[in-house]
């Protein structure tokens, strides 16, 4: 589903962020990406979502080579990749419903279809009753769950999460990870960047560890 072949990413001001990254994820796999902050976890995820392009190397997502993807295709690629961020990236002046509906609105779906899918996604994250609230009125954990609902609402085959529990206490973090596992069970491919090693070790999934832009450990499938 996701394959990296000798991927390098170099920033003119910071130097090499990723060097010679190579790994492969099969469809439906759930993988943790760990490492110190600055090890290159976020950069790696950004490359998969085509928020950035690699300096060298090839990245395949769903069989398509991202390096040769023209700019016009990028939005359609992103619809196949749900992204979850540490800071949620919600629109503060829109309701929970509107936030979650955004990917569907962008795709040009009809009213009814949007309503149906948004409620299904909110139901999955347990926020069906808060659809009218604005994100500001929600707790940190709830906001993150809105972010997750938005990432899965278009049912993308790939889900990326960048430190999704960075601001949450352990109980809430576990809840979020259990939620991820549920998506894993229905066949979504998940790559979750986190430095919450306790949770990672308790969940028994394949774990890729980065250090200074290199893969230093790939624990393989459990």
């Amino acid at each position: 589903m996701i394959r990296f072949e000798h991927v390098f990413k170099r920033y003119p001001e910071r130097g090499e962020a990723l060097s010679d990254i190579g790994f492969e994820m099969s469809p439906g796999e759930m993988v943790f990406l760990t490492g110190h902050s600055g090890a290159g976890k976020s950069t790696l995820l950004r490359l998969i979502g085509l928020l950035e392009r690699p300096s060298r190397g090839k990245i395949f997502v769903n069989g398509r080579n991202l390096a040769s993807m023209p700019r016009r295709q990028i939005p359609f690629h992103r619809r196949q990749v749900g992204m979850i961020f540490q800071d949620h990236r919600l629109l503060p002046d829109r309701s929970v419903f509107d936030n979650v509906a955004l990917p569907l609105v962008v795709m040009g779906l009809g009213h009814k279809e949007i309503g149906r899918r948004v409620r299904a996604a909110l139901d999955q994250v347990g926020l069906l009753k808060r659809e009218r609230a604005t994100p500001v009125a929600l707790s940190g954990g709830e906001q993150q769950r809105v972010g997750i609902a938005r990432a899965v609402v278009a049912r993308p085959p790939v889900l990326l999460a960048d430190e999704p529990t960075g601001n949450l206490d352990p109980d809430l973090s576990r809840e979020i990870f259990v939620l991820f596992e549920r998506f894993h069970y229905v066949g979504v491919t998940l790559l979750i960047a986190t430095h919450d090693l306790n949770l990672v070790s308790s969940m028994r999934h394949r774990t890729i560890t980065l250090d200074e832009g290199r893969v230093v450990d790939d624990s393989g499938d459990w």
């Binding site: 979502g49 928020l51 016009r72 939005p75 359609f76 690629h77 992103r78 619809r79 992204m83 990236r89 919600l90 629109l91 955004l102 990917p103 962008v106 795709m107 938005r150 278009a154």
Partner: peptide
């Protein structure tokens, strides 16, 4: 700006 960025993240085309 932020709204535009989020729309780009969820796959909005430039036309949209």
């Amino acid at each position: 700006r932020i709204e535009i960025e989020i729309m780009e993240l969820v796959g909005a085309t430039h036309a949209f």
